[in-house]
């Protein structure tokens, strides 16, 4: 069983909505898919929405952090949106601060933030 996370393109931006709990394989597959898609489309920004996700452990946090760094290397900006309060609290307690990550409350705010960042 292999699930793939769909990656949508909207103008210069890639939109990813993670709808179900990530297992390790799916997370790694996602990393690869996103980078490939970035290369193919030369997108300038990515929004990853995590609204339905109710927990993130250190492994998934690492994969996400890596994705953000790699995307940065390829010259694009990433905004993470919809991190739930419970998820934020557990991440902080785990000691994962995700310091250099742009965040927004939801997809709408996230796109606003990204466009502003791209204009600047």
């Amino acid at each position: 069983m292999k699930t793939r996370i769909p990656i949508l393109k909207l103008n210069d931006v890639l939109i990813v909505s993670i709808q179900w709990e990530l297992d390790d394989q799916t997370a790694i597959q996602f990393q690869e898919d996103l980078l490939t898609k970035m290369h193919e489309t030369s997108a300038l920004g990515v929004v990853i929405d995590l609204t339905p996700i109710d927990f993130i452990d250190s492994f998934i946090a690492k994969v996400l952090g890596d994705v953000i760094n790699m995307t940065g290397l390829m010259g694009a900006k990433v905004v993470i949106t919809g991190i739930q309060p419970a998820v934020a609290i557990t991440l902080i307690e785990l000691g994962i601060r995700m310091e250099n990550v742009m965040t927004a409350l939801d997809l709408e705010n996230g796109l606003d933030k990204l466009y502003k960042e791209l204009e600047a």
Partner: peptide
């Protein structure tokens, strides 16, 4: 919900 997330994460 917060404690559920804590417990789930710890188990993971």
């Amino acid at each position: 919900t917060v404690d559920q997330a804590r417990i789930t994460t710890a188990i993971s």
